[in-house]
Nucleic acid binder design. Structure first.
Length: 858
DNA sequence: AGCACGCCGACT
DNA sequence: GTCGGCGTGCTC
């Protein structure tokens, strides 16, 4: 049998399967999706089996053998292998990169070089050859040091270079010589980063009757053995040894004695590091659905029932009870014997959320998120591979859960940009989910109070596409129990300034905050910017302190009194005088969360504030701890960046304040208005979710902007109409698809030339394609956007131009934007262009990155 | 990605 | 005349 293996080398030339012989003894362990160690050139690499066959095109004499199988149960399955192929084409990445993204980091290959004594025969042969060569035999007269080292290696069998140098610190050069001479050979092995944790389990090895019978025959002094046997006569379940010795107060010796007699069995079993061990989850039962909820659930249930593929967009206002709909759909899916995946944005994967799922489905749930340790993550993932669970709830990468009977995939807060991975493979979990669901005949539910325009357009049929690829729209417009949406006050900060208020709090928000303190209710404050102030400028000469490695201004952090770069992490002490003109008139501009915290303390002495941003939540468990403190009413105000806007549900929160609604609005991003609308709607939804009514203050310098007006009126429809109009006019998604190609290099001139070359090649590629299709395609861009004839396909390359952040980590960046629509194989054209480009502009230091459907145009 | 093979400059 | 630069090509 032969296997096709994709090896762990992400390069253009190795981006294809290589053939290997499957040794007879490994056959039962190898399947499509197995992780294997294979010889590749001079070394051993990790690889994934992507196909098995009885035949090969290669002269079989040339084939090498698979050396080892890395897992007893293949970590991937044929469907995921196929999905990796799809991803590599769709997102233009190496196949191995897609495959690697599907397994937990713990299984990333770890290569280890070890030294062992050369085979005797081989060594003798080399000696003979050398002697004939000119009699260098003298070299082989081993010195005492050599003898010592050889003895060490012989004794250990194999040693790593590190272990060797730890024992013989001076032996570096000698070791090298001995390797050259052939006394030692280097071998490379693939190892896992992670080992499953195991423990010894004890179980009865005979029937209860036999155990009881034996216990009678035991000598009178074998009291402990007797006790143990009688216990196992009643308890048939295997038990960890440690727990047993603890519980029954018997020694391991007693167990062993009985095991030797064949009455008990002791086996090694995998233990799972359960991050939620020892936590009680209150069992919940399905709630009675509101008519709206029932109406939303019904079509999903129907699709599940028929085991058909279908995508639903569940548009439900904040507090409308989407989660209960998810839970009941999942229940039905499980009842069918199928599996479910629930995706949640990283920051809203809070204990509250986990609790709701664990509470309903108990131990059938695996949880995957980045705050788990590598070991915990690996164990949760093992539960999926070993079929111990049938529900996974997790962040983006959980979409790759290695299930093989998927019935339902839920994507909560589907508009969240964190579903897009910003590193290669730059996939969008929403698209991957739809692809997987199509394979499995599964349903997808995209849920949001503020759907992405892409999804909404697909659901409303606005793109004019046929039934194919169309999502079905489900709407829930009311909050459960008819609670009203909070009243929203938009505060014009310009008016505040005119009235002489230069504080960051408007009079309205200030008063409202004071009221909540009096009434002992809680408030949430949002400022979408961490740190203390955004930039530091000299008022004498206008100098702005910038990162020396990135073209971006540094942010001042009060606590550490440092200036930090939010892109590369560079930090330096705050300047006392202007680095440029040495003036002392340095001023801090803009407001960050730290600054607001300070201001609150000044205005409301004794106020208890919890600040939540990346700086205070980087520690493990910090996020949860802060939220618990807030829930337990140990604070009056929860102040934070966007992480306070999502999914939180605290009954006593009656006030939400947005310090500056414009921060996102003016970014050079075509989604700026959409993001602003979403953020405001989401954060407003945190108020008044329970008994007490809520109130919202939005502070802004642009109160008339449609995103702010519509968000304050809770009017998604109005926002949508306006935004879609603008997108159509400007040629942006959802009407047009984008691909962002970014080139980076240390030198600008080379980069400019490369960019031009890339763009013109790509244009040629399209010209060729276009001519093949005949006339009817507009050649120019914006003026002709709606004029596409023929099959309506359109394609245009913009740029190259310098990227919005022209330099990051000392590398300059240029980008080309590709806009297209209709039946254009852009991925194919890009792959072709990149290949041709590689052949002509060969330069290892030039990197080209492609972002299909980019979320951020940086 | 590594690593070997192969063809042109500054040194013993 | 050699050591070594990294351009080019290959890995089942």
């Amino acid at each position: 049998m032969y296997a096709q293996v994709v090896v762990d080398v992400p390069s253009k030339q190795t981006n294809r399967p290589f053939d290997y012989v499957v040794p007879e003894e490994l056959r039962t362990w190898i399947g499509v999706g197995s992780r294997v160690g294979v010889p590749f050139g001079p070394r051993t690499l990790q690889g994934f089996v992507v196909a098995l066959s009885e035949r090969t095109d290669m002269a079989s004499g040339k084939l090498k053998k698979i050396e080892q199988v890395l897992d007893l149960v293949p970590p991937l399955n044929p469907e995921l292998v196929q999905l990796a192929r799809w991803m590599s084409r769709t997102y233009i990445c190496h196949e191995i990169t897609a495959l690697q993204a599907m397994i937990p980091g713990a299984l990333k290959a770890k290569y280890e070089k070890r030294i062992e004594l050369a085979d005797d025969a081989e060594l003798k042969a080399r000696k003979r050859a050398d002697a004939q060569d000119g009699g260098q035999a003298l070299l082989f007269a081993a010195s005492p040091e050599e003898e010592a080292i050889s003895a060490f290696v012989r004794q250990k069998g194999q040693v790593t270079t590190e272990a060797m140098l730890a024992r013989f610190p001076e032996a570096g050069p000698l070791l090298k010589r001995m390797l050259e001479q052939g006394t030692f050979v280097e071998v490379q092995t693939v190892r896992d980063r992670m080992n499953a944790k195991t423990a010894l389990f004890v179980a009865p090895a005979a029937s209860p009757e036999e155990l009881t019978a034996h216990s009678m025959k035991l000598p009178a002094n074998a009291k402990r053995q007797k006790e143990l046997l009688l216990w196992f006569a009643e308890n048939l379940e295997p038990l960890p040894l440690a727990e047993l010795t603890d519980k029954l107060d018997v020694g391991a010796g007693t167990v062993k004695a009985l095991a030797d007699k064949g009455l008990l069995s002791v086996t090694e079993r995998e233990l799972f590091r359960d991050p939620y061990a020892g936590r009680e989850f209150r069992r919940t039962t399905p709630l009675a659905l509101t008519p709206e909820q029932r109406q939303a659930l019904e079509p999903v249930a129907d699709t599940l029932e028929r085991r058909e593929h279908g995508v639903f967009l569940l548009h439900g206002v904040t507090g409308s009870g989407k989660t209960e709909v998810y839970l009941q759909a999942i229940q039905q899916c499980l009842d069918q014997g199928r599996e479910a995946i629930v995706l949640v944005p990283e920051i809203s994967l809070t204990p509250q959320m986990v609790e709701r799922f664990k509470g309903r489905f108990g131990s059938a749930v695996a949880v995957m998120h980045s705050r788990l340790s590598q070991g915990e993550r690996y164990d949760e993932w093992r539960k999926i591979v070993l079929k111990r669970v049938s529900v996974v709830i997790g962040a983006r990468s959980a979409v790759f859960a290695p299930f093989d009977r998927i019935g339902l995939i839920i994507i909560d807060e589907e508009h969240e940009s964190s579903y897009k991975q910003e590193e290669s493979p730059k996939y969008h979990a929403r698209d991957v989910a739809v692809e997987r669901a199509a394979y499995h005949g599964a349903a997808v539910v995209l849920g949001s109070a503020t759907p992405s325009l892409e999804s909404y357009a697909k659901a409303s049929g606005r793109l004019g596409s046929g039934a194919a690829g169309r999502y079905r729209l489900l709407t829930m417009a009311e909050r459960v129990e008819g609670r009203p949406l909070p009243a929203v006050n938009v505060v014009d900060l310009r008016e505040e300034l005119k009235a002489g208020n230069r504080s960051m709090f408007s009079r309205g928000l200030y008063e409202a905050l004071g009221q909540r303190l009096e009434r002992q209710e809680q408030s949430v404050l949002l400022l979408n910017r961490r740190g203390y102030s955004t930039f530091v400028m000299c008022r004498s000469c206008g100098f702005v302190v910038q990162c020396p490695h990135c073209d971006i201004s540094l942010t001042y952090h009060q606590v550490s009194r440092t200036m930090r770069c939010h892109y590369c992490g560079f930090s330096q002490p705050e300047p006392a005088t202007c680095p440029s003109c040495e003036s002392e008139h340095i001023r801090y501009f803009g407001t960050g969360t730290q600054r607001v915290e300070e201001e609150l303390a000044k205005l409301f002495p004794g106020i208890r504030v919890i600040r939540m941003d990346v700086d205070t939540t980087s520690e493990k468990g910090a996020h949860e701890r802060l939220l618990n403190r807030f829930r337990d009413r140990q604070a009056d105000v929860l102040l934070g960046t966007q992480m306070v806007a999502k999914g939180l549900d605290f009954p006593d929160v009656t006030l939400v304040g947005v310090i500056a609604a414009d921060t996102v609005l003016h970014l050079p991003d075509f989604r700026a208005a959409e993001k602003t609308f979403q953020l405001l709607t989401q954060v407003a939804g945190r108020a008044g979710r329970h008994r007490l009514p809520g109130e919202v203050f939005i502070q802004t310098y642009t109160p008339d902007h449609y995103s702010i007006v519509t968000a304050s009126a809770h009017d998604f429809g109005a926002f949508l109409e306006q935004e879609l109009d603008i997108r159509r006019q400007r040629g942006y998604p959802p009407y047009y698809e984008l691909v962002l190609v970014t080139l980076s290099h240390e030198q600008v001139p080379l980069l400019v030339r490369a960019g031009e070359a890339f763009a013109s090649r790509l244009k040629q590629c399209w010209e060729h394609e276009r001519r093949g299709r005949g006339p009817g395609y507009p050649a120019d861009s914006l003026g002709h956007l709606n004029d596409a004839r023929g099959d309506g396909a359109y394609f245009e390359v913009y740029g190259p131009v310098a990227s919005p952040i022209p330099r990051i980590k000392d590398r300059y960046r240029f980008q080309c934007m590709i806009k297209y629509r209709g039946n254009v194989d852009v991925a194919g054209m890009l792959a072709e262009t990149a290949a041709a480009f590689d052949d002509t502009v060969r330069n290892d230091k030039l990197t080209i990155s492609m972002d299909v459907n980019p979320q951020v145009l940086m």
